[in-house]
């Protein structure tokens, strides 16, 4: 009986090390791996496919330029999404689509930094909510809240990782996530069916 040897795909860290050792193709594989989720994240933040395309290219360009300074103790995915978020927010700021106050949450109140302890039902939305309605509810959020929801639910990042990306304490991120879901639910309940 022939033994079939299956090789595990290389991790981000392994590919990164290969690239730093001179294997250019390793960085290309990293790009291929993260392109789709990164584009989807940026697209849902900025809402425009052409802009999302440019911003995705810019994100990977920034990552390539700074990869030699990347702290390999960190998660590459987290670092990449942090660049994507900051690049998109800078662009939205320049486009004046959002006010600084919508992005700058360093003046977050003390109460909002506390973790909410009230449980929420697992299914926050009705099963038959249409994709379109949910997308509209998502777009109704501020870019800051929207990025937290996207990172948690479509990119499956932990709150710890999200806290690192957005540069806020984890409790703040959890509170904002919960608040975002409540806002989305309120928006959906006000929308005509």
């Amino acid at each position: 009986m022939r033994a079939i040897v299956l090789s595990m795909p290389a991790t981000d860290e392994e590919l990164l090390q290969e690239y730093l050792n001179g294997d250019e193709a390793a960085f290309e594989r990293l790009v291929e791996r993260h392109l789709t989720p990164l584009y989807a994240f940026i697209y849902r933040l900025c809402g425009n496919p052409d802009e999302a395309k440019d911003l995705t290219q810019e994100t990977f360009l920034k990552a390539w330029k700074n990869v030699r300074n990347f702290d390999q103790e960190r998660s590459f995915k987290t670092w990449l999404f942090a660049i994507a978020r900051n690049t998109t927010f800078d662009y939205l700021r320049k486009r004046k689509q959002i006010l600084f106050s919508e992005l700058d949450t360093e003046t977050e109140s003390f109460e909002s930094s506390l973790e909410d302890t009230l449980p929420l039902p697992e299914e926050l939305f009705a099963q038959n909510e249409s994709q379109q309605r949910v997308e509209q509810a998502l777009l109704s959020l501020s870019p800051d809240y929207r990025s937290i929801v996207l990172l948690h639910d479509t990119d499956s990042l932990t709150f710890e990782a999200i806290a690192e990306i957005v540069g806020k304490p984890m409790n703040t991120v959890k509170s904002q996530y919960r608040r975002a879901l409540l806002q989305m639910r309120a928006f959906l309940s006000q929308m005509p069916k």
Partner: peptide
């Protein structure tokens, strides 16, 4: 909090044609 959006059915976003090549070109 075991809050999930497991039923949050967002449409899948496909990457536009040529995006990968665009990244490498940049």
């Amino acid at each position: 909090n075991p809050v999930t959006l497991s039923n949050l059915r967002l449409p899948k976003i496909e990457t536009p044609t040529g995006l990968l090549e665009g990244v490498f070109a940049r």
